[in-house]
Simulated assay, not measured.
Amino acid sequence: MKKRILILDDQRAILEVVTEALAYEQFEVMDISLGSRLFDAVCDFRPDLILLDYKLADTNGGDLCRQLKDSPGYRHIPVIIFSAYFTPADHVNPGGCDGILYKPLDLESLLSTVYGFLDGQAARTPESA
């Protein structure tokens, strides 16, 4: 069965690139652009992983992540926040997220991180790409 990934970003170009890359890898992908739709989408789609932008037009991704992690029904879902507002040196964990990707997104890092969370391994090796 295909793993399901939900992506929330308010930039259409990022949604298109990430959705296409993940669909190419045979994931089932749903994308949304409004934070207000997140909980309905999680309930309907039942994702195995959530990719969540930190700064959204209608809300804050860190706040949404905290709400997910505080919910007994959703806290088990890994949440990866991506943002241009943090660097690896910042040592932040917005909303109790499980991982952070830094914008601009590097597709190899994205895929490696996604496979790492979904496979329960640290990262996918280049040979398995």
Rank of each mutant, 00 (worst) to 15 (best):
L56Q: 08
A57F: 09
A57S: 02
D58G: 01
T59D: 03
G61P: 03
G61D: 06
G62Q: 12
G62S: 02
D63I: 02
L64Q: 07
L64E: 05
L64P: 15
L64K: 15
C65V: 05
R66A: 15
R66N: 14
Q67I: 12
Q67T: 10
Q67N: 15
L68H: 01
L68D: 11
K69E: 09
P72F: 08
R75I: 04
R75H: 12
H76G: 03
I77W: 05
P78Q: 10
P78G: 10
I80W: 13
I81A: 14
F82P: 00
F82I: 09
S83L: 00
S83Q: 02
A84Q: 02
F86G: 01
F86M: 14
T87W: 13
P88K: 05
A89L: 08
D90I: 08
D90S: 07
H91N: 08
H91E: 14
V92I: 00
V92L: 12
N93W: 05
N93E: 13
G96T: 01
C97A: 05
C97S: 09
G99W: 09
L101G: 09
K103S: 05
D106S: 00
L107V: 05
E108H: 08
S109E: 06
S109C: 02
S109T: 04
L110W: 09
L110A: 03
